[in-house]
């Protein structure tokens, strides 16, 4: 049986949901153990056990919370030397990819990023990765040992299957030399009413919204529907809305019951983060936009007129 190490990312003491998604696939691939670092690691270990981890290596040093990437890369490198896993799985999330990048460079081996699936094959591992602008899927065999693979959030459904993990203390004193990029303050700017990742309906705006002054229109529709508001990378880059609203390859992955894309053309960077939505509605003035070819309902028209009318209709239906 191959051995699989899952990097269970914690965010301010809480296990990120992607960690449990990774467990759901990892336990099909071999003997699974996980590593959880920082505040909350021991509590996370219990959850990881329920999701199939046989052993969870923990270390609750606050340095893992307070310094970017380096302490975690140190811990993983040390754990690798001790356990020699065949595969190390990371979520393709901003924090995990920084740790994975440092680890790979330190071990001198390549990695496979942005994978949507992974399978064991012929004693090694093959990952499925969007290719050629997302129109194709490449089967990529990992050449390195260990194989390091980063998997997109929401690629698998988390489910409990397992029992109690053996919790092992990872003996490691974080070196002062790794306490460098110091997180000295955490500022919460936007408390989302409905979290994008959990919303049953997501309404996203793109360049076709015309400007940031028109985004409140989407907020109103979202309020009426109990939806969350997202955005394309183009408008995040343009500074119209914060990065926290970005849906796409390097933003958030969402899988709502209904996704409403307003003024979004449908570049791969965006669609990879929303194409598994159950129902997609697109509103765009361009009938030829790629998003129209994947929408269940495509409406060619002026978003700035349709959205307020839709908000009024939704309110009327709810109250009528």
């Amino acid at each position: 049986m191959p051995s699989v190490l899952v990097y269970a990312e914690l965010n301010q003491g809480k296990l990120v949901s992607t960690a449990l998604e990774l467990m759901a696939r990892a336990r099909d691939l071999g003997d699974v153990y996980a590593v959880a670092l920082g505040t909350g690691a021991k509590a996370a270990a219990a959850t990881l056990g329920k999701h199939g981890a046989k052993v969870v290596h923990v270390n609750e040093d606050a340095a893992f919370d307070d310094y970017v990437a380096e302490p975690a890369a140190d811990a993983l490198a040390a754990l690798y030397e001790k356990e020699k896993p065949d595969l190390i799985l990371f979520g393709f999330t901003p924090d995990s990819r920084e740790v994975a990048g440092r680890l790979a460079a330190r071990l001198g081996i390549g990695l496979i990023a942005n994978a949507g699936d992974i399978a064991a094959q012929g004693g090694g591992f093959v990952a499925k990765v969007p290719y050629f602008g997302g129109a194709k899927i490449a089967s990529m065999k990992a050449n390195a040992k260990p194989a390091i693979v980063l998997i997109r959030p929401k690629s698998f459904e988390a489910s409990e299957k397992g029992g109690t993990a053996e919790v092992k203390q990872l003996d490691l004193a974080v070196a002062d030399g790794s306490k460098r990029a110091h997180i000295t303050e955490r500022v919460v700017e936007a408390s989302e009413k409905v979290k994008l990742e959990d919303a049953k309906v997501v309404i996203s705006g793109g360049r076709g919204m015309g400007g940031p002054q028109n985004f409140p229109m989407l907020e109103e529709l979202a309020n009426a529907l109990g939806a969350a508001v997202g955005a394309s990378r183009a408008v995040v880059d343009a500074g119209w809305v914060p990065y926290s609203m970005q849906v796409g390859q390097t933003g958030k992955s969402v899988r709502p019951g209904v996704y409403i894309a307003v003024g979004i053309s449908g570049a791969m960077q965006h669609t990879v983060g929303m194409k598994t939505s159950k129902v997609i509605i697109a509103i765009n003035k361009d009938a030829e936009a790629p998003i129209m070819k994947m929408a269940d309902l495509g409406v060619v028209g002026d978003a700035l007129k349709i959205v307020p009318a839709l908000t009024a209709a939704v309110k009327a239906k709810k109250h009528g």
Partner: peptide, 8 residues
């Protein structure tokens, strides 16, 4: 890092 075995 990888060998592309196939594209679908």
């Amino acid at each position: 890092a990888e060998t592309i075995e196939g594209v679908t």
